[in-house]
Nucleic acid binder design. Sequence first.
DNA 1: CGCAGGATCGGCT
DNA 2: GCCGATCCTGCGA
Length: 213
Amino acid sequence: MIERPDRTPLPRGFFDRPVLDVAPELLGCTLARLTGDGPIELRLTEVEAYAGELDPGSHAYRGRTPRNDVMFGPPGHAYVYFTYGMWHCLNVVCGPEGRASGILLRAGEIQIGADLARKRRFSARHDRELAKGPARLATALDVDRALNGTDLCADATAPLSLLPGTPPRPDQVRNGPRTGVGGGGAHQPWRFWIDSDPTVSPYRAHVPRRRAT
DNA sequence: CGCAGGATCGGCT
DNA sequence: GCCGATCCTGCGA
């Protein structure tokens, strides 16, 4: 009998906890995508927590809308949003249900399907850039709003799921301010990443956009 | 390598 | 109308 890594998705209970407990534990976990062309999998190296309606940085801050509806639903589901007119970003809803908290999956290391990811991320000059940033991660794994609401705990044959992986050593888990978040939520140190990992995206402070002249 | 500017459109005020 | 949980390219050092 051949030993294989655990293909059982993380249980719903894993996500049905306070988002700040879940976020650091997601590091090292496997995000598995089943595309028509084959599987693409990555090991998460960077995530960011958003604490629901009370968090000025969260999409849920101004209450429930058609766009953020999934965030108010049960934990363990995918919240995918479209931004800047061209990009998608992927979150996991966390508990308790109705809190509308979630975790943005910001970066990872491609472990399976790098050839497929390279086709989708043709401008990446190096494999470490394939999923270095939330929109790059979504692009590499062919994630768009068609996957909004997907149950990530269903099973490994689903189009998108989260599985246990290889956790980092506890002393390798770092945290700091969230990238690109302005307003009242800017200073919260709710971004978590694996220290010294080359696939972690660079920190960028929020920049209000200037109007075109 | 760092920084500035542009792309592009859905969601919400 | 304004702005965004971003990324890419081009330019200069």
